[in-house]
Amino acid sequence: MSETKTASGWQGTGDYIASEDLRRIVNVAVALGRPLLVKGEPGTGKTLLAQSVARGLGLPLLTWHVKSTTKARDGLYVYDTVQRLYDSRFDDHDVSDIAKYIHLGPLGQAFDAPSRVVLLIDEVDKADVEFPNDLLHELDAMSFTIPETGRVVTAKERPVVIITSNNEKELPDAFLRRVVFHFIAFPDETLMRDIVDVHFPTLDKALLDAAIAAFYRVRKVDGLRKRPSTSELVDWIAALLSSGLDASALGDNPGGVPFIGTLLKQERDIVLAQEARSPKRWR
C-alpha cells in the first residue's frame, strides 16, 4: 500500500466543517484502502461529507444512490440487450461487439477511472438485506469480471469509497468487518445553537433557548419511532416565528408544545410525547 501514503491529508473544506475526529478517520480509511462507513441520524451531513472529501482531495466524485430495488450488479455494469437486439435488424451496426452494449455502473466507472476517484455509495441500507454482502468481493479485490465479454475491470488506483447508512437496517457482520466506521453523533445543544443561528440570525434569545430546550425534551421521549432532527427543528422554529408565539408558550411538557406535528411525523409518536409526562399506565 505504498500509494496510499501520498493521498492522505484531507483537511476539510470551507463549507464543511469536519470535526477533527472525522478528518483523522477519513485519512485512515484512505491509508488502509478500506471503505469508510458513515452512520448517523438523517440530517447530520453524511452525504455532504463525501462531496467535501472529494473537493478537499481534489478528486472527482462519483455517486451511487441506492434504492430499494438496487441490485449489486447495477453498480458494476448493465448489458443493454434491447439496444443490441434493436441494432441487429439493420446492416448499419456491428452487433458482434458486445462491449459496445456494456455500460459500466458507478462502481465500475470508479474502478475504470484513469486516476483515483471518490465513490459515494449513498444510503446502502435502503437496498435488500443481502445487498452489502453482494458487494464484498468487489470492494475487497477492487476488481470484477464481465462474463459477457470476459473483460476484467480492475481499479488502477483504489477509489476512496464512502458508504452512508441511515440505520434503517442492520448491516451484515461480514460487511462491517471490512470497513472503517464512524458514527456522526447528533449535534449537542451548543452546536445546535450555532446551526440554528445560521438559519435564523435575528432570532430572539429567549425564544431560541426555550425552543432548543423543548426540542431536546421531545427528542428524549422514550420509544419514539422517528426522533426529530435538525431539519425538523428548523421548520418548527419557522412555524413558531410565523405564528408570533413567544417563549412562554412552549411550556415544559414534551407533548404540549405548539405545532408538534412539525417535529413528530407519526401519530403514535405524538401520543407517546403527550403521555410522557403522566406515569405509565398498564392496560
Binding site: 477533527e20 483523522r24 478517520i25 485519512n27 485512515v28 466506521f181
Partner: peptide, 19 residues
C-alpha cells in the same frame, strides 16, 4: 498515519475496531 498522541489513537483505533 496516526500521530503519537493518545487522543488521536483513540479516534483512529475506534474507527478501525468498533463497527
Amino acid at each position: 498515519v496516526v500521530r503519537p498522541d493518545l487522543a488521536d489513537f483513540y479516534t483512529v483505533a475506534r474507527a478501525v475496531l468498533v463497527k
